Simulated scan of single mutants.
Amino acid sequence: MLLFDVKYLRIRRDIIMLLPDNIHPEHCIYYNGSIILEELEKQTEQKLFELYHNVKKSNNMSFSVFILSLDWLYLIQLAQISEKGVVRKCS
């Protein structure tokens, strides 16, 4: 296997994580990010674990998927996390 093949495989795996080709949207970062945004629409500032608890009540999301989705929202500048652990929806 050539070096560029390994790089392609890594990129392909990351793309599948964001946009799965199966019919389970609950495994998609985009879908779970939208669930988090819906919760932040109700209350624009929430503590991290409070937000996870509220999301978990409406959707059975694991904590690792929650953090990955929250990281994605941060990267696209839709959510901010303060040093005190408060998550805020960006406008």
Score class of each variant (00 low, 15 high):
R88K: 15
N54W: 03
L48F: 13
Y30C: 12
V86S: 01
L68I: 10
E26I: 10
L75M: 05
N32I: 10
M61D: 10
L19C: 14
G85I: 01
Y52C: 11
S82Q: 01
E45G: 02
L73P: 09
R12E: 09
K84P: 00
V87R: 05
K7L: 05
N54A: 15
K56Y: 09
G85W: 01
F63Q: 14
H27I: 10
Y30E: 07
I15D: 06
M61K: 09
C28L: 09
L40W: 03
Q46H: 07
Q43M: 13
K57Y: 05
E50Q: 12
E41M: 10
I15Y: 15
L19D: 10
F49H: 04
I23V: 08
W72D: 11
L51D: 03
E83A: 13
S34T: 08
L48G: 01
I15Q: 08
I23M: 04
I11A: 06
I35E: 06
F66K: 08
F4H: 02
F4K: 00
H53W: 06
L9Y: 02
N59E: 10
L18K: 15
C90P: 01
M61F: 11
Q43A: 04
L51M: 10
A79Y: 07
E41R: 12
M61W: 10
V6W: 00
R88D: 00
L19Q: 09
M17A: 14
L37C: 08
V87F: 06
I15A: 13
N60K: 15
L9F: 02
R12W: 05
L48P: 01
L78W: 07
H24M: 05
S34R: 09
R13A: 15
M17Y: 04
R10F: 02
L9G: 00
K56E: 10
W72P: 00
M1K: 01
F63P: 13
K56W: 04
L78F: 14
F4S: 00
L9A: 12
C90M: 03
V87M: 07
K84V: 00
P25S: 09
K7A: 07
E45I: 05
S69W: 11
Q77N: 14
I36W: 09
G85N: 00
L3S: 02
K84A: 04
Y74D: 03
R12L: 08
D71C: 12
L78S: 11
L40N: 06
K47M: 08
I15T: 06
P25A: 06
K84T: 03
I35F: 03
S91T: 06
S82Y: 00
K84Y: 00
E39L: 11
N22I: 13
H24C: 11
V6S: 02
S34A: 09
D14A: 15
S62H: 14
G33I: 09
E39S: 06
S69M: 10
I35G: 05
P20Q: 04
K57D: 13
R10N: 03
I35R: 14
Y31D: 09
E26R: 08
R13F: 05
Q80A: 01
